[in-house]
């Protein structure tokens, strides 16, 4: 799945928009997350219709100021604290299609965010994890006379 340069910029801006706003302990640092990489991985592994959906989701988010408020602006040119509000409105939009596309982009954002070890740590997902015994030795897997070569 190829993304045009402007689409990659739109995608980054939209996905950053989900975590925009200052002051939260979780906030990713600039450059800490490679959002476009997550889109590329998802796109490469997804069904053709889902790839189209991913692209539509990026366009939808980028054009959300126009779609929701009639403002001739892109999401990336809106103040960071307002981006999250626009995306939140898309997530509860009355149209099933728009809601689903926005949720799809939010899922891509989550996958990108939690690919980063420091952000997993800042989420405290594993805080208070009981100590577990070490993993037992891996059992020998079958020798696979496969299609190598």
């Amino acid at each position: 799945m190829r993304w045009m340069k402007f689409e990659a910029r739109w995608a980054s801006a939209a996905m950053e928009g989900f975590v925009s706003g200052r002051g939260a302990a979780f906030a990713p640092h600039p450059g800490e997350v490679d959002f476009v990489h997550a889109l590329l991985v998802m796109g490469a592994a997804s069904a053709p219709l889902a790839r189209l959906g991913l692209r539509l989701a990026v366009w939808l988010a980028a054009l959300s100021p126009l779609l929701l408020d009639g403002r001739l602006r892109l999401l990336s040119s809106v103040a960071p604290e307002q981006r999250g509000a626009l995306l939140a409105r898309l997530l509860v939009h009355r149209s099933f299609l728009l809601r689903e596309l926005a949720l799809y982009l939010k899922l891509a954002t989550s996958l990108a965010l939690f690919s980063v070890a420091t952000l997993r740590e800042r989420s405290h997902y594993l805080r208070a994890l009981p100590a577990s015994p070490p993993a037992p030795a891996a059992r020998a897997l079958p020798l696979v006379p496969s299609v190598e070569g």
Binding site: A24, R83, G84, L87, A88, L91, L107, T109, L111, S123
Partner: peptide, 24 residues
């Protein structure tokens, strides 16, 4: 896993971030 849980939590922007900081 945290990725799916995060996507399942409502909102976007600052409110969502607040939730993401306490996924446990």
């Amino acid at each position: 896993p945290p990725e799916m849980l995060a996507a399942r939590l409502p909102g976007a922007g600052h409110a969502w971030q607040q939730r993401l900081a306490e996924l446990d």
